[in-house]
Amino acid sequence: MPSVRLGIRRFGAINGLGLATLMKREASRGLKDYNYQLLGPAVTALLYLAVFRLALHNDATGQVLINFIAPGVIIFSACEKAYESAAGSFIFDKHEKIIADMLMAPLTPFERMVAYVGADCLGGLAVGVAVAAVSLVFAELGAAHPWAILVFGLLGMMFHSLVGLLVGIWAEKWDQFSAIHTFLLVPLSFLSGVFYPIEALPAAFQHAMQWNPLYHAIAGFRYGMSGTEAGEPMIHVLVLVGVNLVLAGWAYRWFRSGYKLKP
């Protein structure tokens, strides 16, 4: 007779093992095919910088603009990755009907959400580091306020990952996935200062930008790298934390109710 009795596996308030397993699965599927999952964003970022480098004069003013753009491109690429892995894995799993594997596991809605967001942020981080490395070809990068790089990088990726979770749960087709990306997320980041200071915008738009969470993420992240201040960093943090909490609450509700996930 085996000395161990079969029974339900027991764990404390949080199923740490389950959470780590789901996170590991999600993070590794996001980076499995590094060929285009890391190299792709890196090449695209390099292209953006190259285009600006070539369009600008090769002098000090040109370099200033490149140094301004690079942090924007880094956080933009990292955030895009977080959105893609979150939404992508849900839509894929729903189509392949393997979403049940995740729903059957003894994980609470909260644990599921944390595991997905954590894994998406890790994927985003990998892309961010890769893009930062290739950016060095054209730009001079700094770390004026390391805490801000970390905090804003994380908050920006969390925002994208949570939007990705919501889209992934809601969407039934890949069209919806790309529609949110093309018509919502990319315009929000492109128009909120990835490539230019918002002072370049007409006054009315500058004001509207304050309502765009991505403006706060990009401005804060750039403050972390180059020390250029655009607005009050603490305001940026508060806005992002607030938005992320709302989205997390929303995602939690959907995970709990099984909206579009359970029959």
Binding site: F52, A55, L56, H57, T61, G62, L65, I69, S178, A179, T182, F183, V186, P187, F190, L191, V194, F195, Y196, A200, L201
Partner: peptide
Amino acid sequence: LAPLVTGLLFLAVFVLALGHRV
């Protein structure tokens, strides 16, 4: 529609970022 929006975005970005400098 998607490529159209992307094209307009690029136009906005490059004009706003480079319009005065190039």
